[in-house]
Design a binder for these strands. Structure first.
Length: 270
DNA sequence: AGATCGGCCTGGACGC
DNA sequence: TGCGTCCAGGCCGATC
């Protein structure tokens, strides 16, 4: 489940090997969620950045308007270069041939997406178009965050997963941040003080996870094939039945907005 | 227009 | 052993 720290780790490994390369040909699996990726053929990759859980590669080509290759890893997406230890793989859904190598997009469950759009035009990608501020950037401020949470009556966890109040938080880090800030995932009203605590908790759990190159719970792998090291540091996500480190109450698993949710029934308050 | 819910997709865990 | 069922969940689109 690649969320912001996982996608950031992928971006850091992908960037030096993709930027300034020319894409000489493109292959995509017709059964997967790919749109206009052929339009990347012949272009040069001018830059690679992360926005929430998306990777955005700027593309330049002679006699053509600027475009962007938008990449989302879905649940099981991973990029791998065909290096020395490469072997054929039935789960490769797309291949970008570069002027100096071959980059595969492997995705067992086909939730990943690759799309080429006019540069900056995300109108066909609603989640990206409506995405909230980067949680580790200067535009993410406690007061604005509180105001954003007040604009909806959905449970706070569902709001986080919507990507609108803040970018890049998924199921793992939502559970972690809500535990850290002592807020019940089903809370529908979060006051300014609790919003500020959640603001800080989101930044804290994401920053720590980036430093450990993400959480590998099942499938997530970096471009070099390695796993992230954050899984053993999780306090809430997937830890149902274990004692809460704050109050020793057994963590409970429930369902919020159709997503598995683990929380402390005693010290996370609605 | 916002909220809700089912569908997508596959492998793995589990029960009988 | 083998089969069936359920679960994981980011995002999208249909529907209310």
């Amino acid at each position: 489940m690649p969320e912001l720290p996982e996608v950031e780790s992928v971006a850091r490994q992908l960037r030096p090997r993709l930027v300034n390369r020319r894409i000489t040909s493109v292959w995509t699996d017709p059964q997967s969620r790919f749109v206009d990726v052929q339009a990347a053929t012949g272009a040069r990759v001018a830059g690679l950045r992360r926005r929430g859980k998306y990777l955005l590669a700027g593309l330049t080509a002679a006699e053509a308007p600027r475009r962007e290759l938008v990449m989302h890893l879905g649940m099981t997406g991973a990029f791998r270069f065909r290096d020395g230890d490469w072997t054929p793989d039935a789960y490769v859904r797309a291949t970008l041939t570069l002027d100096d190598g071959v980059l595969d997009f492997r995705d067992v469950r086909r939730f990943g997406r690759l799309t080429v759009v006019p540069a900056g035009d995300y109108s066909t990608i609603a989640t990206l178009a409506q995405m909230g501020p980067e949680p580790l950037g200067p535009d993410f401020r406690p007061t604005d965050f509180h105001a954003a949470l007040r604009r909806s009556r959905m449970p706070v966890k569902a709001q986080l997963l919507s990507q609108r109040p803040v970018a890049g938080v998924g199921n793992i880090y939502a559970d972690e941040a809500l535990w850290l800030s002592g807020i019940h995932p089903r809370a529908r009203r979060v006051g300014p003080q609790r919003a500020a605590r959640l603001w800080g908790a989101i930044r804290q759990v994401l920053q720590a996870a980036i430093e450990r190159e993400g959480t590998t719970f099942r499938d997530y792998q970096m471009v070099n094939g390695q796993s992230g090291r954050n899984a053993t540091f999780l306090i809430a996500y997937g830890q149902q039945g274990r004692p809460c480190p704050r109050c020793s109450t057994a963590l409970r698993k429930t369902d919020v907005g159709g997503r598995g949710t683990t929380y402390c029934p005693r010290c996370q308050r609605a």
